[in-house]
Design a protein around this nucleic acid. Structure first.
Lengths: 189, 189
DNA sequence: AATGATACAGACCGGTCGGTATAGTTGCAA
DNA sequence: TTGCAACTATACCGACCGGTCTGTATCATT
């Protein structure tokens, strides 16, 4: 049985990293918010970087789950499932603590090209696009890869737009555009 | 005539802010790279925040110029000018030092909702969308605001996609999608 | 009663942060 | 030649950074 202190530290760190940014969140702040001590934190996570990495991996898992479940709960037909992705994200963008995509943010905060948690972010992004490609193939799109890439552009764009300005209806506009692109790619309309 | 030391400091700071991030760039690093001293820097810019603000304003002006000139150099017909925007950005994304959109990055780095340089970023974003709306109106799009917003989503999305993975052809895919949306909005095809 | 794991308490390290103070140097104009 | 402004040089400030240190309290197992 894994320690729940470790979980609590990771949970607290995740929230702070997402809310304030990774660089902007000091180890002391995490320790204080989690109600523990530095020694305990460094017992479970050898360095801040390891903690960041754990945060990104956990977040990736949660996000994947939310997306998959959200799609399944909304639609079963291939074409409708492609559109459901936008509804899932629309809900995420509308939630209170929304501060943009954790992975885009992390990639932006990491200066160097090869920083470990930059790779984790890229990884999530590629996996997400892969998932969209699968959906596009199931829907028998004419160019599944192209369609998936375009839909992912719309989603990423809407995320950063909403991060700039809340309640701008960005995801709604993205969904409308997606509908056109999907129809065009499926029926040639 | 304004001092060229001030210009040199601002220029140096701009490069470092963009290349390494704003938070990650210390005042000492700027001073050293510009070959001057802290006292001179603080003579022209009362605080690092003022320097950041000046950097964003200058960058915004340069970007606006590049976009306007780039469009004018490529097309004159309203519809072609809408598409030319994507070619302009395509060139920017392909340039060597590309590290994403300075304004998206700045907005991501600013934790608080009301940080001054977050507002500067939002401002540029809104002005850009406004410019797209003007182009869409000139092209007699049926819903100029909606079309402009959707095109801006594609562009923002392509920027962050390219930031995650270089030479991914994101802007090309965005352009293809844009063509479909534009045609649809103009001719009802 | 002794052991070992878990966690807490808090001082401490070298280094960097943004920003300031004081003093010295240059070059140009009256 | 004097004076003044632009600029340099450098030491310094308190605060914070990530990370390590010694030591102690708790508690279940043996």
């Amino acid at each position: 049985m894994s320690s729940n202190l470790k979980e609590r530290i990771l949970q607290t760190a995740s929230e702070l990293f997402y809310r304030q940014g990774i660089r902007a969140t000091g180890v002391d702040a995490i320790v204080k918010a989690a109600g523990t001590t530095k020694m305990s934190l460094y017992h479970y996570f050898p360095s801040k970087n390891d903690l960041v990495l754990a945060h990104l991996q956990k977040t990736a898992e949660i996000m994947r789950e939310k997306i998959v479940d959200g799609i399944a709960a909304r639609a079963s037909e291939p074409k409708a499932r492609l559109l459901a992705v936008f509804d899932v994200f629309g809900e995420l963008l509308a939630s209170d603590g929304f501060r943009g995509c954790p992975f885009i943010n992390a990639a932006t905060e990491s200066a160097a090209e090869d920083e470990p948690f930059r790779l984790a972010s890229v990884d999530f992004y590629l996996q997400f696009r892969r998932r969209l490609t699968d959906l596009a193939e199931e829907a028998e799109a004419r160019q599944p890869e192209l369609l998936a890439r375009q839909l992912s552009l719309l989603i990423s764009g809407a995320i950063v737009a909403e991060q700039m300005q809340r309640n701008s209806g960005a995801m709604r506009a993205a969904r409308d555009a997606a509908e056109i692109l999907i129809n065009r790619s499926l029926d040639g309309v």
